[in-house]
Amino acid sequence: MAIEPTALIQSILAGVFVGAIYSLVSAGLTLIWGTMRIVNFAHGALMMLGMYMAYWTWYFLGLDPLLSALVIFPTFFALGYAIDKFLLRRIIQASSVAQLLITFGLTLFIQNVVLYFWRSDIRLVTTSYSSLYWHAGGLVFDAPHVIAFFAAILCGIGLHLFLTRSSIGLAIRATAQDREAAQTVGIETKRIFGMTFGLGTALAAVAGAIITSYYPVNPDSGNQFLFLAFVVVVLGSLGNYLGALVGGLIIGVVQSTTGYVYLAQAELPLAFVVFLAILIFMPEGLFGKRLRR
């Protein structure tokens, strides 16, 4: 099969679009890991819950998913904070097995609550721009992907500003780097953990919300993203949110271009080959300590 330049560019762009979503999901996951040292298996389920909230606000109130994301962010921040306060705070010092079990248990719980109330049928959000396409130089852009991409980029920039400019953001990073030292300067790390989990959860939920304009919602929707997010988190150096933001784009592009150029079935295995190669050859991740923030 001949490789057509336009199609190659198109597939790279598709990778960037979906990669931005991976970035957002992964940034939340890596923040939680970096600060709390908890591998949050419930991240995908919380993302899925965000998708459902976007769906239902659209269904009942006709609210565009992008607008509902503005409500979803604080709602899921509060939810994440509560999960930390009532659940994780008890196990923050526990073994990683206990932590793994509790976040995994949370996943099952969320998925089953969703299954119970809304069954497992997929649901689609239809917006005024669902079928809006732009043609430029042989390329086709669909509004839902493009809009979600820009929303994700905005969130990424917002996250960066928050973590570098605000006291809480800086306190989160300080806690991630040295819990004890953070306490000596008066940072109440317990509260910071709550905020971090809230922030990570909100990022996942918003990432879920903004893709509902093109991605079908169902109780398993978050899992596909969670698996890739783990790859991205390792790629971008564990705990490094900038690495995750960049890593998401890389994985998105690797996935879609290998899918186009090489073999479609290679795309996911290749993402995992990248994952394994990094673990073996660059255990610090692509950005190592150089870019860690």
Binding site: L170, A181, V185
Partner: peptide
């Protein structure tokens, strides 16, 4: 009550300014 350590524990991956900004202004 302020405290310093034998091996200084600054926040390595933050800038000098950020190291100071992260202290809550209580």
């Amino acid at each position: 009550v302020g405290r310093t350590f034998q091996v200084p524990r600054v926040f390595d991956n933050m800038t000098v300014v950020e190291n100071l900004y992260c202290v809550p202004a209580a």
